[in-house]
Design a protein around this nucleic acid. Structure first.
Lengths: 346, 346
DNA sequence: TTGTAGGCGTTATCAT
DNA sequence: ATGATAACGCCTACAA
C-alpha cells in the first residue's frame, strides 16, 4: 500500500521513482512502456518502488509529448433526456473498444454553454468531438474542424456536407407516425412540440404534413400545438389545453415531437378522464425506455439510438486517424413501434 | 477566419504565433495571460496573428506547467437514471461558478468500468473526483485520496469518515414512506427493489421496517420483493408477480426502492386493471421529474438532488484548495411528496 | 515594453 | 540492459 504523501507533497514523477529505485528515468519509462526491454530483476524493483511511492502517470505530460490525447467528447443537447444518454452509451461502447475515454458534456440546449465546452475541448486536444448542436448550421463547428479537431454532428444533418453527420430521417419518422394514424381512421389530429428552431421538430412536422396531404386530408385538420421545450412539463400543459376542447373539436389523435412531450400529453389525457387510445390516441418519438414503460405503453417512432452513437464514434475516429477520410452523411431509417397508446389492448 | 491548415499540419503553438507576429514567445504568452503588460499595438498584432493562424492553447502544456488542471469529474452510477443526471447538474452549476469544467463518466454500476475511469482521472490530474460508487466502502477510493486526488462520495456514506461524503438519510426516507402508508391505514405492504448489495436499498428497507415495527405491525405483513436492478423493466416484472395475487393476499400498498421501479410497478398495476391508489397505493423514491409526470402522479421521497451535487462539488473543491480542509459527512434530510398514487384525487 | 531561458513529466533516440 | 538527453508547448522569473 502506498504511504500517505506528506501533506503538500506532490505526486511523485518517474524521476522520483528512478531515484528511489536507483535507475535512470529511461529505465522507469521502459518499465511502463516496453517492459520486455528491462531485466526482470530491475523491473520488479521499479514496479515495487512505483507502488510504494504511489506513482501515477501524468497524462498531460504524455499527451504533450504525444501531441494527441486518447479522449473523445460528446456534447449532449440535454443530458436529462434519456434519448441522449442512450446515444452516449453507444459512443462509449465504440470508444471502449478502441481504448479511448469519453468526455461527456451537457450544453442543456444553450449556445453559450455549448461554445464554452467546445473551446475547452479544443484546448484539451481531444481526438474528436461528437455533438448534437443547438444549431446544426453553425459556422463555428466547421471552424473547429478546420482548426484540426474532427467534428461529427449527431442526430442532425448539415445542409452542406462539410462535416460528418449521423442522423435519422425525421421527415420519414413524421410520415410513419401519421400514416399509422390515418390507417387507424383518425381524421383530426394534432402535432404537439416545439420550438420550431429545433431542426428535428421542423422535420417531424413536415413529414407529418406530407403524409396528411398524401392522404388528401384537409390541412386544417392537422393542428400544430407548439411548446417552448421538449419536456414532460410542456407536454402536459399543451395536452391539457388541447384536450380541454369539446369532443367534437378535439383531435382524436396526437403525434408528439418526442416521447417526453408524449408522456406529458398522456398524463394530461388521463387526468382529464379520457381513455387512451379510445378517446385520444398518442404517438411519441424516440422510443425511449420510458415509452414502453408508460402507464399506457406508447406507440413511438423508434430511432436506433445506440447505433447512432456507435456510428458517430467510428466516423470521428476515422476522421482523426485516416488520412483518406471522406466526410459522410449517414442517415438511418426510423421505424414505428406500435403499442397500446394507439392500438388499445388487442 | 482561420485559413485551413494544410493537411497534416499541426496546430500552431505560441512559438509559431511569435514568429509570424515578429515578437518573442514571452510576449505572446503575455497577451494571453497578462494583456495589460503588452502595448496595445503589439497586442492587436499578436491577437490578429493568433486568429489568423487558428491558434488554440494547448491545455496539456499549461497543465503540465501548472501542475494542476481546471477539471472536476463525476463518476455516475447510472447515467440513464434521471436522479444522477440531476445530481450532475448540481455539480456542474457549482463547477461553472468557479470556472471549472466537469468530466462526466458512467460506471453503469460495474466495478470494472468504475476503476478504469478512476485510473484515467487520476492520470488526468483532475482537481477532484466526485463519485457515486458501486461499493462505498472500497479501499481503492481512500487510496486515490491518499495519492493526492480529493475524492467525495455522493449519495452514500462511508462507515469510517476517511473521505468527504454527501448523502441523504435513506433510513429516514424509508421511515417517512412507510409512516405515510400506515397513516393511510395500509396493513399489508410490500417493498420492491434490489439488489441488497446496493447500500441505498438496504437503508431504505431498514427504515421501512423500523417504521413498521414502531407501529406494532407484524413483520410478515411487510414483504420484500427483490429485483435484480433498479429499473423500470425490473419494477414491471416484480409488480406483475406481486399484484397477480388474490386481493386478499395482495398488499394494499407498495413502497419502491426508487422511482424507476415504482413506475414499473405502476405500469404493472394499471395493466392488471387495478386502480391506483384504491386497489394498490404506490410510493417511489427520488422524486425524479418522471414521478410527478406519471400517468398517476407518484408519491415519492424527495431527495435534494441538485443540492446534493452542489454541496459535493464545494466539498471537493475545498479539499483540493484549502489546506485546513476537514473531512465532512453531510447528510441531507429527505421529505415526502404526496401525490395521487397514494392519495387519489382529492 | 519586450526578450531569454529553465523547467514541468514523459517518451524515444542514441550511446554505452 | 541501462543511461543520458532532447523535445513536446507553455508560463514566469529575470534580464535588457
Amino acid at each position: 500500500m502506498a504511504r500517505r504523501p506528506a501533506a503538500g507533497t506532490r505526486i511523485p514523477s518517474i524521476k522520483d521513482v528512478a531515484a528511489a529505485a536507483q535507475v535512470s528515468v529511461g529505465t522507469v519509462s521502459n518499465v511502463l512502456n516496453r517492459p520486455e526491454l528491462v531485466s526482470p530483476a530491475t523491473r520488479d524493483r521499479v514496479e515495487r518502488t512505483m507502488a510504494d511511492l504511489g506513482f501515477v502517470r501524468n497524462e498531460s505530460a504524455r499527451q504533450l509529448r504525444a501531441g494527441t490525447s486518447r479522449t473523445l467528447a460528446y456534447v449532449m443537447l440535454d443530458a436529462s433526456n434519456p434519448f441522449f444518454t442512450d446515444v452516449a452509451r453507444g459512443i462509449e461502447e465504440a470508444a471502449d473498444e478502441l481504448d479511448l475515454s469519453l468526455f461527456l458534456c451537457n450544453s442543456n440546449s444553450r449556445a453559450s454553454r455549448e461554445s464554452s465546452h467546445l473551446a475547452r475541448l479544443q484546448q484539451q486536444r481531444v481526438q474528436g468531438i461528437l455533438i448534437t448542436p443547438v444549431d446544426a448550421e453553425s459556422e463555428g463547428l466547421a471552424e473547429i474542424a478546420r482548426r484540426g479537431t474532427p467534428v461529427v454532428v449527431v442526430d442532425r444533418t448539415r445542409r452542406d456536407a462539410d462535416l460528418c453527420s449521423v442522423s435519422v430521417d425525421d421527415r420519414r419518422g413524421g410520415r410513419l407516425a401519421v400514416e399509422h394514424l390515418i390507417e387507424l381512421g383518425h381524421r383530426r389530429i394534432a402535432f404537439v412540440g416545439g420550438p420550431l428552431s429545433i431542426g428535428q421538430v421542423r422535420d417531424r412536422i413536415d413529414g407529418a404534413r406530407a403524409a396528411w396531404r398524401a392522404a388528401n386530408r384537409p390541412a386544417d385538420a392537422l393542428v400544430h400545438v407548439p411548446t417552448d421545450a421538449l419536456t414532460v412539463a410542456d407536454g402536459t400543459a399543451a395536452g391539457a389545453r388541447l384536450l380541454a376542447q369539446s369532443s367534437r373539436r378535439r383531435p382524436t389523435a396526437v403525434f408528439c415531437a418526442n416521447d417526453l412531450v408524449a408522456l406529458g400529453v398522456l398524463r394530461a389525457a388521463l387526468q382529464a378522464g379520457l381513455r387512451v387510445p379510445d378517446d385520444v390516441a398518442i404517438v411519441g418519438y424516440d422510443d425511449i425506455d420510458f415509452a414502453a414503460a408508460a402507464a399506457i405503453p406508447l406507440t413511438s417512432v423508434r430511432q436506433p439510438r445506440v447505433e447512432l452513437g456507435r456510428t458517430a464514434a467510428r466516423l470521428v475516429i476515422d476522421e482523426a486517424t485516416n488520412v483518406a477520410h471522406e466526410h459522410q452523411q449517414v442517415v438511418f431509417e426510423p421505424d414505428l413501434v406500435t403499442r397500446a397508446s394507439t392500438l388499445g389492448v388487442r
